[in-house]
Design a protein around this nucleic acid. Structure first.
Lengths: 339, 339
DNA sequence: GTGCTGATTTACAACGTTGTACACATCGTT
DNA sequence: AACGATGTGTACAACGTTGTAAATCAGCAC
């Protein structure tokens, strides 16, 4: 059985509150008492019961992170950064997987287990702007990603439109004009897919290049296999193209594989750029140009914002919209050599 | 402010214990009372305070998962499976990253935050067999991986030796005799690297092929970049080889890249097999043959075993050694076509 | 009616911690 | 010598839940 404040207090010959004070670095404790207590703590290997602390203080020291799927490299790396950032401020992270499913995402927000956490970082995929009211929960909440604008919660976003525009401009800058885009979601406007498509179109428009629906690859989830399929469909359709903007790196890597199987040289025949800057892009053949969306910055900003909300609690200010800086990584798949 | 059992009890006109009974599906509650209570629960949107429940019951419904790094695909996918398996039995998972560092791993075991969890799944990398005594903690603990044999805790392992032997035999079966191996850790016997090397040597020995130290690539962490470097060193050394057994897929993918840059055809000049069956191997060019070490089975077994330990608590039986079934995936990098 | 049985409900005391309010020293001022 | 100010320590009551033991109630046999 593990020891409690009572045990330590008895051994040190003080009251439990004094032990509590020592544990919490309360300043008015004499050096003598402090060391007596610490000795007892040491001897009994006392470690505070976090459930009790959390019950009493209303804080658990745990935050939730809800992502679609950890197997997707982007979310794994995001989770990595979030855990680091949280650890730096003494918080633990419970990870939940929603599968990007709307039902599951809504359920997550109503989950009683949420009550165990001080706040939630939520990367929704299935929720749309119409669900915004449902996101108004009493737990501190910070949204990651794009689905809900002007919602009732803080929101840390990557600059999807601007970054997708920059990626497309990068392809234009190396002389490509027939740029396929894969990863579009039919009819979507507000999600990452919609926004990245918007950036793509904006870049084309500015460059005076016509938008061609035949160059758009639609699909469901952004998994590698879908990138491969979409690329195959475009190849099979016989449409002419000299570059591909894939809406994420997984898609790009899937597309890369299909292109090479089909005998297209990358980047000579077809230049390819992805989005996310996941690790494997650096080691693919050819290495993959991409957009670094500022993942670390997003994670750190999100954790910081959540902590502020948790500490604020009472009456928080207006929901904030925060955006991370992005950067183009010019690697071999677009003729570059950056590492 | 959120509502408590008291609020519900007052509204329903019953005692708090009755509400508690309803919430816990205690059987002797009349239908009338039950529905009165449920109506009140509904109206107040009551959700139990998990800290209080956990303080009172000694169970938090949370388990810990400590892995070296989520950015490594193997651990991300393992975490995915663990979270799924845990969710299936109503548990949440707190993930901690140790960086594979011995200090941090030891610290993890002594971390007071552990007290928030009912048990720990621990995938150590830095700990050696000499640390076994330190692993004897009072929290239920299940080890994943290989570092500590016959330790004081349950242990769910992949069959490193047998699987590595099978991988090597696979290369032998397609006629290769000069098989490089990359990922070895100098002097290690007990860790994954040591065991996989042992399997490799056993396969060679059985086939009557001499072991050649010049074909062994040593390194530190199993990151892709190290696989690339080790492969480069072997190429630079001028030693003759016709196959590579990489101790994990990250290394294999790094090696693949270097081989192709150097103009070696895979699998014609050099066949390559990895270990872990991470997703990206299916989409690399060529697709990567590998060993599926039974990740899902490991995750499910580990969670099940941990739950048994948690429920057992009192006086548990002997530590158990469990091993998952593995399977060779024969893809393009060894001339196969499996998906 | 009385006593018995079992189902239903309740009061009360924990679980281990921290906030509040107060008691007691000690100290420097006046 | 009396005073407040400050530093140090304590008792007690929460936090919201569940386990225990006992109270109440209904149904039934006598």
């Amino acid at each position: 059985m593990s020891s409690t404040l009572h045990d330590v207090a008895r051994l040190a010959g003080v009251s439990i509150k004094t032990v509590s004070n020592v544990m919490n670095d309360y300043e008015h404790v004499s050096a003598a008492t402090r060391s007596k207590v610490l000795a007892a703590v040491q001897e009994l290997d006392y470690r505070p019961n976090l459930s009790a602390r959390s019950l009493r203080s209303g804080r658990s020291g745990v935050i939730g992170l809800a992502v679609p799927e950890l197997s997707l490299a982007y979310f794994a790396q995001l989770a990595d950064e979030v855990i680091r950032a949280a650890a730096a401020v003494g918080l633990n992270v419970i990870i939940e997987q929603t599968g990007g499913n709307r039902e599951r995402e809504l359920q997550m927000l109503r989950n009683p287990r949420l009550r165990l956490t001080d706040g939630l970082l939520f990367s929704p995929l299935g929720l749309g702007i119409e669900d915004a009211p449902l996101v108004a929960i009493d737990t501190p909440l910070v949204l990651l990603g794009e689905r809900i604008f002007n919602g009732p919660a803080d929101h840390v976003a990557m600059q999807n439109v601007e970054a997708a525009k920059a990626a497309t401009e990068h392809l234009l800058s190396i002389g490509r004009r027939r740029i396929a885009v894969i990863g579009a979601h039919a009819g979507e406007v507000i999600g990452s897919a919609g926004l990245r498509l918007e950036g793509y179109r904006a870049a084309l428009a500015e460059a005076g290049v016509d938008f061609d629906e035949a160059l758009v690859g639609y699909m469901g989830a952004w998994h590698r296999v879908n990138g491969a399929q979409a690329m195959q469909r475009i190849l099979d359709s016989g449409v002419d193209f000299d570059a591909v903007f894939a809406m994420n790196d997984e898609l790009a890597l899937g597309a890369l594989r299909v292109l090479q199987h089909a005998g297209c040289a990358v980047p000579d025949d077809v230049a390819v750029i992805g989005f996310d800057d996941v690790d494997e892009g650096r080691y693919s053949i050819p290495s993959l140009s991409t957009v670094d969306p500022g993942r670390r910055e997003i994670a750190e900003t999100a954790v910081r914002t959540l902590v502020e909300r948790i500490e604020d609690k009472g009456r928080a200010g207006e929901p904030r919209e925060l955006r991370a800086a992005f950067r183009i990584r010019h690697r071999e798949s677009t003729g570059g050599s950056e590492d």
